[in-house]
Design a protein around this nucleic acid. Structure first.
Lengths: 159, 159
DNA sequence: TATTGTTATACTCTATAACTATA
DNA sequence: TATAGTTATAGAGTATAACAATA
């Protein structure tokens, strides 16, 4: 595993490797989650929304759209589906009668924990060939790549 | 930019950073390509298929499906669309009358060059905060992550 | 007049199942 | 019987546009 082979890398090669690796990881992650055989439909985008709601406790649909980097219309569909699965509930916002607040059910909180344990296992397997130092280094490089770009990556895509 | 902040990184954090960074990069890439204002519909998956055809010169639809990690049925739709855009042509395979060979048009080859120049520009911008050494290092870590996993990443997802 | 969320609609990428023609 | 590609259908994730209720 010599480093020499990869010197004078072109920028496009790095970007392609990044995208390819990420696709591979996403497939593994999604497959792991699917194999959990949860009693509801779960997926990357759905989980991402649930985790965002979890982070805020209560959050407006419009804010959710902004945070996730998707449109309000798209959030409506996700919330419809997840509400039917009993994973979240809509509540009228007492401060603004146009707005709707979203909140996780207790059931959802339990289920998310299971999914997160599964993620942890999958992540450990995926990274098993990297030493702790290499992991630190990889994270450092990834953060350096986005943090210093003027276009902030202020939506969070976890899967 | 000290490295200390990121030590004892959890595996999940690294994976999430990887996926998030990749999504960000894909958006930038797709936006760059869209801004080229090409006379046809281009997108990540379409470009990926075109580049795969370009790599092989002539390739059977079934092989294309395997290489891209998608189903034959999905390839049919892509080829239908791209053939209408005059970017590729179907030819009967002389060796097997069930099979169809796909080939790029000269027009497609020109257009792909433009897209690739655009990719190069976008990649340079995205990586401008990483030194040559850091790029080499990043690529090395990414390859190490996938290469040594038993599940080979033998489809290629460029965007 | 602007914003929140929804109805209506559509597009892209992907899949499975059934079928046709060939091997 | 198996394979290559297509027709038919579906579903997830995303979007825009028009609209109702409210600010």
């Amino acid at each position: 595993m010599t480093n020499q082979n990869f010197s004078k890398t072109s920028s496009v090669d790095v970007i392609h490797a990044l995208i390819k690796t990420s696709h591979y990881i996403q497939r593994e992650f999604e497959a792991s989650i699917a194999s959990l055989d949860m009693p509801f439909q779960i997926s990357g985008p759905r989980l991402r929304l649930l985790l965002k709601v979890s982070e805020f406790g209560k959050i407006r649909m419009s804010e959710l759209a902004t945070k996730l980097g998707i449109k309000a219309r798209t959030v409506t569909d996700f919330v419809d589906a997840l509400e039917q699965e009993k994973l979240l509930v809509r509540q009228p916002d007492p401060l603004d009668r146009r707005a709707t607040l979203i909140q996780l059910t207790d059931y959802a909180k339990d289920q998310i924990l299971k999914v997160q344990m599964c993620e942890k296992e999958a992540a450990d397997i995926l990274l098993r060939n990297l030493s702790q130092e290499q992991r630190d280094n990889l994270l450092h490089l990834l953060l350096g790549l986005t943090n210093y770009n003027e276009v902030q990556c202020n939506f969070e895509e976890l899967i």
